[in-house]
Simulated scan of single mutants.
Amino acid sequence: MLERLQAALDNNDAQGFSRELGNIAKLRSMAQLAKDTGLGRESLYKALSGEGNPSFGTILKVIHALGLKLNVQLPERTV
């Protein structure tokens, strides 16, 4: 699942990223995720379905609550 999450990010696929994050969240318990993020369970289901349009703040809250990290890297330069 993490590979698909990374692939969606690499391909600039926001809907795919949200959907894969939602798949991970479902495995961990959406009810617990709602408690940990302070967001409504139904709102999370919709936001992470791949059909929703979650805010970046929501994505960050979910990533943090799942114990994941989002890293930014500069592309490698060839000489």
Rank of each mutant, 00 (worst) to 15 (best):
Leu66Met: 10
Glu20Gly: 02
Asp36Asn: 09
Thr37Ser: 07
Glu51His: 14
Gly40Glu: 10
Arg77Gln: 05
Thr37Met: 05
Arg19Ser: 11
Thr58Arg: 07
Leu39Asn: 04
Asn12Pro: 02
Glu3Pro: 00
Leu60Asn: 03
Gly38Ser: 09
Gln32Leu: 07
Thr78His: 13
Lys69Ile: 09
Met30Tyr: 05
Gly67Pro: 10
Ser49Asn: 14
Arg77Pro: 00
Gly40Gln: 11
Ser43Leu: 07
Arg77Leu: 01
Ser43Glu: 13
Ala47Thr: 04
Phe17Asn: 09
Gln15Phe: 11
Leu5Ser: 09
Asn12Val: 03
Glu76Gly: 02
Ala34Lys: 08
Asn23Ala: 14
Gln15Met: 14
Leu66Asp: 02
Arg77Met: 08
Lys26Ser: 15
Leu5Ile: 03
Leu5Ala: 10
Thr78Pro: 07
Pro54Cys: 05
Ala25Tyr: 01
Asn53Leu: 00
Gly38Asp: 11
Ala7Pro: 03
Asn71Arg: 09
Thr37Trp: 03
Asn11Tyr: 04
Ala31Ile: 00
Ala34Ser: 06
Ala47Asn: 07
Asn53Pro: 08
Leu48Phe: 09
Gly57Met: 02
Val72Asp: 01
Thr58Gly: 01
Pro54Leu: 01
Leu66Phe: 08
Gln73Ser: 12
Ser29Lys: 06
Glu42Met: 05
Val72Phe: 15
Gln6Asp: 15
Arg41Leu: 03
Pro54Trp: 02
Val62Ile: 11
Asn23Met: 06
Gly22Cys: 12
Asn53Thr: 13
Asp10Ser: 14
Val62His: 04
Gly40Leu: 09
Lys35Leu: 13
Ser18Ile: 08
Lys69Ser: 15
Ser18Arg: 01
Asn71His: 05
Leu68Gly: 14
Leu2Ala: 08
Leu48Glu: 10
Met1Val: 10
Ile59Ser: 00
Asn53Asp: 14
Leu68Cys: 13
Leu68Asp: 15
Arg28Lys: 15
Gly50Arg: 11
Glu76Tyr: 01
Asp13Phe: 06
Lys26Phe: 10
Leu48Ala: 08
Gly50Ala: 10
Ala47Ile: 02
Leu68Ser: 15
Asp13Trp: 04
Asn12Arg: 03
Leu44His: 07
Gln6Cys: 15
Asp10Phe: 07
Gly57Leu: 01
Phe56Cys: 12
Ser29Cys: 09
Ile24Leu: 15
Lys46Val: 09
Pro75Arg: 00
Gln6Ile: 05
His64Val: 07
Leu48Asn: 14
Leu33His: 06
Gly57Asn: 05
Met1His: 11
Leu60Thr: 06
Gly50Glu: 14
Leu66Ile: 09
Thr37Glu: 08
Lys35Phe: 01
Asn12Ser: 07
Phe17Ile: 03
Lys35Glu: 12
Ser55Tyr: 02
Ala25Cys: 12
Arg28Leu: 04
Leu2Ile: 05
Ser49Thr: 14
Leu66His: 07
Lys61Arg: 11
Ser29Pro: 12
Leu60Glu: 08
Leu44Gln: 05
Gly40Asp: 02
Asp13Asn: 13
Ile24Lys: 12
Leu68Ile: 13
Gly50Asn: 10
Ala25Lys: 03
Lys69Gln: 15
Ala34Arg: 02
Leu44Ile: 06
Asp13Glu: 06
Leu44Phe: 00
Val62Gln: 06
Val62Arg: 04
Gly40Asn: 12
Leu48Lys: 00
Arg77Glu: 13
Asp13Pro: 02
Val72Gln: 06
Ala47Leu: 06
His64Tyr: 01
Thr78Leu: 06
Gly16Asn: 04
Leu27Ser: 14
Ser29Val: 03
Lys61Pro: 04
